Amino acid sequence: MKRIFPYLMIAFGASLWGIIAIFVKGLGEYGFTAMEIVAIRVISAAFFLIMIGLARFRNQLKLKTPVDLRLFAGTGILSIVFFNYCYFTTINQINVSMAVILLYTAPAFVTVMSFLFLKEKVDFRKIGAVAGTIMGCILIAGLTAGDSKITFLGILTGLGSGLGYALYTIFGKFALRKYHPFTVTLYTFLVAAAALIPVTRLWTKAGLFLSADVLLLSIGLGFIPTVLAYFVYTWGLEQTEGSKAAVIATVEPVVAMLLGVSLYGENLGIIQIAGALLILSSVVIVNLPSKRKNTGIISESQKLEH
């Protein structure tokens, strides 16, 4: 039991990510826009992270220089804000199941961007994973175009969420060279919150937060599929290999699919399932251990992407 416990924690953390639609759809029903829900998530998460930092990570609360805030403009605004906005929009546009599958196009984006910007090598395995991801997207988008629950905007923002998801890995690599993962996470959410508060003007909807349901959904969104999921996943990751953790984390779309079918009455066609399996298989392939030992940097940043 002791040996498999870390794997169970990784699966548990990924499962918490998979239930995020409950909070997103719940807040959407109260009239919050996708960008406002992103703001609620990052502000709530930043609050919890500050409390945890004061309790356990006091040495990781300070930046070495204020100039380093530019590192977190990449992780916080270009990735977290963009990724969450696209993802939450997709959840409200198409099936939850398909939204999370399109999110998992991220490894294909990471492969391409790592080759272009980080000069990482691309082997046949990675090429095959990218090709499988593209084919899966074609099956989901092209052959289900007649499905009223699949919209062009939903497909577009779904792919955007995958791109934003991937951008965290790229920007996160640079930040993690200089800072502890907790510091990166904290300042990512702080910068995102600072950018979104004036943009969304959430204070104009302060009255809605007097509702117990809205307050619980807001707190839950910042804590359960964000802070709690991160810490549970991180604990498991520290006890096992990054490549194995990345594969186990594909339980997230499975949980999202089950949630969509059981809670929201979504139906998945054979073509959609085939496309989903192609994308998930590509994720597994790209994370299979290679002959050369993994540095673990991608896995270190991947756990923060959500």
Rank of each mutant, 00 (worst) to 15 (best):
S44W: 03
P289K: 10
A55S: 13
P107D: 05
L16D: 07
K173Y: 04
I279E: 07
W235E: 14
L277F: 10
I273Y: 07
L54W: 13
G160Y: 07
L258T: 13
T295R: 06
L78T: 11
A14H: 03
T65I: 08
K173P: 02
V42L: 10
I52T: 05
I271F: 03
K173C: 00
N294R: 12
T89E: 04
N267V: 15
I52M: 02
P289D: 11
L217W: 08
K2E: 05
Y168R: 10
T157D: 04
L196S: 00
V112M: 04
D213N: 10
I138A: 07
I40F: 02
I248H: 01
K173L: 00
V283Q: 03
V42H: 06
A212V: 11
I94Q: 13
I140T: 11
A276N: 11
L143Y: 15
K25G: 10
Y165M: 08
G53P: 07
V122T: 14
Y233E: 04
L237Y: 09
A39K: 00
I224S: 02
I170L: 11
G53V: 12
A192G: 09
I271Y: 03
H180N: 15
V81P: 06
V255D: 04
S161A: 14
F189L: 15
A99D: 11
L153P: 07
V81I: 15
W17P: 05
L228M: 11
A229C: 07
K64A: 12
V214T: 06
V42A: 05
L69S: 09
R41A: 02
V284D: 02
K62S: 12
A249H: 04
F12L: 14
F171G: 04
V38A: 06
F124K: 12
K64N: 14
A141G: 09
P253L: 09
V100H: 03
